[in-house]
């Protein structure tokens, strides 16, 4: 399986990346584009600020890749996450998975986003006009 994991501060060029990710040996390409929404629980969000424990986050992202490679029939997978300031409407995370068949592609993509939120050391700060909150910090 061809794999690509990255943490970057520049905007993710989604259309360009999706176009170049397509493979002729695959009949299924599943893309998850996680974008920044303008409000959470009724409160307006100004922007997000992501902090990453870089070296460990890449290690954990690669571990997720090992996992899907072992479990699903895939030809390629890509996991890109932003760090630093991310504006409303921009992509915070882009996941692309390519497989000959759709079931494996859907399942692997779902696995990557779900597990990213559990094990990869990246933190999301929601910034409002009057303060900020570290998402998920408190029960």
């Amino acid at each position: 399986m061809r794999r690509d994991v990255k943490i970057q501060s520049e905007p993710i060029k989604v259309e360009e990346l999706v176009a170049s990710f397509k493979r002729e040996d695959c009949g299924a390409h599943v893309v998850f584009d996680g974008t920044v929404r303008s409000a959470t629980k009724g409160k307006l969000v100004e922007y997000l600020d992501f902090e990453a424990l870089h070296s460990m986050a890449l290690k954990e992202m690669n571990r997720l890749m090992d996992n899907i490679e072992a479990r699903f029939e895939l030809e390629a997978a890509s996991l890109i996450h932003r760090e630093g300031k991310v504006e409303i409407g921009e992509s915070a995370v882009l996941i692309m998975v390519a497989s000959p068949h759709r079931a494996a592609a859907f399942d692997a993509c779902r696995f990557l986003i779900d597990e990213l939120k559990v094990s990869v050391p990246i933190w999301k700060k929601e910034v409002y006009k009057d303060g900020y909150v570290w998402v998920s910090a408190h029960p």
Partner: peptide, 10 residues
């Protein structure tokens, strides 16, 4: 020691 509070990527 790295102090890792609840992660919240994505």
């Amino acid at each position: 020691i790295l102090l890792i509070p609840p992660v919240s990527g994505g």
